[in-house]
Design a protein around this nucleic acid. Sequence first.
DNA 1: TTAAAACTACACAGGTCTGTGTAATGGCCG
DNA 2: CGGCCATTACACAGACCTGTGTAGTTTTAA
Lengths: 218, 218
Amino acid sequence: MAARAARMAPALTTDLASADRRESAKSEMRARILATADRLFYHQGIRAVGVDTVADEVGISKRTLYNYFPSKEALVAAYLEGRASALPPSDLPPVEQVLGSFDRLERYFESQGFRGCPFVNAIAELSDAGAEINKIAIDFKEGRRLWYRDLLVRLGVADPDGLATQLRLLIEGAIATALVSRNAKVARSAGEAARALLAGAGVQLPVSAGAAKSKRKR
Amino acid sequence: MAARAARMAPALTTDLASADRRESAKSEMRARILATADRLFYHQGIRAVGVDTVADEVGISKRTLYNYFPSKEALVAAYLEGRASALPPSDLPPVEQVLGSFDRLERYFESQGFRGCPFVNAIAELSDAGAEINKIAIDFKEGRRLWYRDLLVRLGVADPDGLATQLRLLIEGAIATALVSRNAKVARSAGEAARALLAGAGVQLPVSAGAAKSKRKR
DNA sequence: TTAAAACTACACAGGTCTGTGTAATGGCCG
DNA sequence: CGGCCATTACACAGACCTGTGTAGTTTTAA
């Protein structure tokens, strides 16, 4: 107890207490492992990447990796959790936020490492995925749907839930199609469809840059 | 030579020539293997099912299986080929064929063994899938898109290619969403969105059964 | 009946995987 | 300094995988 009290007041400049430093090092290492696992799992697939490979890429021993994650399944769950980060808030008008989410798709599909939706892939790969992994995937999808829903509410749409679901279907469909056909152009089809659905729901769309000639879709 | 000539004229009732019988037995066995592989690969995943398991389920030895398919990859390719069967022609009006494809989705999602799109799953599972498998998947998706396109042409839609792509996105999105969230109701959202897009393209929609009260989507 | 073809069981090579056991090493902290 | 903790290298168990080799058995066909 006395020793503990003494440890509470080391008072040495800006140094962290040793316990805190250890915590910080641990959390840094955890982040490094997660970053590597994310890269490997997403690009090559979960079943295709063994824990040995992850450890090697991080530059640590497998034993140490198992010191941070009790099993591969836990590592996979953490990987998916990391992919489920919430969208940052934006000051843009709601309609621009919605359309922007579609406009960003094309570059996403064109980006080097694009390999579809990590959650869909995980469910497809792990037919017997644990309940935790399923929950993470469902929560992510629902979170994205609610993000649309809230924006649509602000736009005064009559059925924000239904339209949000439909916009999500377009996103999911575009991701799946881009994965299979490797054609980033489907992003534009999704955007056009989203605009049509929004217009049909009475949302006033902003005049897009160079909209005069955009008749063709494909 | 004389023996061979005699073999050419056995003339016994309706019996097939022996060579034909052998061919037929071979093709039956091939079909049995394929049916079993289809069931196991689709429900449990390609990587999760070994060649031994397929052979055991068919009731043959692994050696025999390798007599019909030179490698697992060939078996997987045949499995996907079998999933890529063309849609049967229909006499229904084009608009009903299009809407029917969406109406059938919900029961498809509810069916016991539903586990998403076999092609998307295969690409997701086999990150290093061979060119053949990729081609099969792409051809399938494009075939489905052209099926819509032809119907839309008959409906006089201005941009049948673009709208066909959009309808496909809704289907793909619904499949992916149903796989993850296990909520067959997304099929209705997809159908509603399809109707909205068709209406927006000037297609006259038939009055659906009990359409008077169908205001709610979600 | 006889010969060839197909199929069987079984073992095996060579590789992968997850997870653990062990003993030695290095660094940090009191 | 002395103890503790993290980490390392390495081996290993036990399981799975794909594909092949072998030798014996059944089926089929002339």
